[in-house]
Amino acid sequence: MKIAEKKAIKRESIIQTALKLFSKNGFHRTTIPDIAAKLQMSVGNLYNYFSSKDILAQEIIKYTSEALGEKIRVVNMSEASAEDKIHQIVDIYFTMAKDKPEMIEYFLRVYLSNREVFNDGCEGMVCVSGFITEIMIFFDDSVRSGELRNQDFFSAFGLFMGYLGGMVFLKGENVLPKDIELYIDDISLNIYNALKA
């Protein structure tokens, strides 16, 4: 294996480990030595990959956004109806929240809760563009096909993602009486009914 490939693998393992620790313990209560210890690497070596904790936090949000964006991209490329695509996107989001809760938790509990960490380098939608782009394409396609009602992007986006984020937040607080996957059908239908033409 080439050195560059080894470095890329190491880099991703740092991101995944830090993602879990940040999501579980919070951004401020997680230190670089904590992350290094978990990975059994030296603090100095970790800094070779990420020059600061803030930079690492920014790279993680890009990583999670790209991962989610890639899955939605597959949905966008399919021939499914808008109603079906909504169901698939909700499924992806809630399945991720169940199987890899740190991915969504990071967005809600680190990215949205520690804006000062992201102000310089992750302004606005810069670091979540991988995900936002696919949502925009989904909306554009669905309005073009006449399935969804044309409206301001943020009024539709807020309804869709605010709803999903809220449900995952409730799950994180252990408030939901049922497994989050059991909400997929109803929530998909609610979103479709709210946005349909």
Partner: peptide
Amino acid sequence: NMGIPAKMPLGISRRAYISLVAVTKS
């Protein structure tokens, strides 16, 4: 369509254009 121009600049893919919009508008 939901705020996204229906016609893209000449020869620019929609995904490329939208990615750029999400960044620059920030």
